[in-house]
Amino acid sequence: MLIYGVALLATCLVIGMLVGQALGAALGIDANVGGVGIAMLLLVIASNSARFKDLSSGAAAQGIQFWSAMYIPIVVAMAAQQNVAAAASGGLLALVAGVAAVVVSFLLVPVISKIGRPKTKTQQSGEAP
């Protein structure tokens, strides 16, 4: 049944959100700490385990894949409701701060990507578990 996959996905998100909110409360902040990330991990674990096979294969898988395919349209709808007018009217300081943060972060992507990635053969044998 298609709904089984949708329900599995929904359950993962609800549990993840609950854990993320509890994590935030435990840290004393009013924010969800990684709820979506935790939900994704749960879905990865569930879809790789034999126990949840009925919920993540066949017709049930189509229920999850449908939402996955709806991702880009949903992102377009998300873009269409950003407060672009406020960003544009924030003045030079906001513009420079935002742009500078993005440029520096872009530049760091290749640097940090190297962490934990074996570059040479000797490192590879050394890091093998």
Binding site: V44, S68, M70, Q81
Partner: peptide, 27 residues
């Protein structure tokens, strides 16, 4: 309706669904 479609709830739901098919080893 674009507010609902692109709002936090459906956005997070769709983001989580993209994890379907990801292998744990990659993570």
């Amino acid at each position: 309706g674009i507010g609902l479609m692109g709002g936090g709830m459906l956005r997070d739901f769709a983001i989580v669904s993209t994890a379907f098919g990801v292998r744990l080893s990659e993570l």
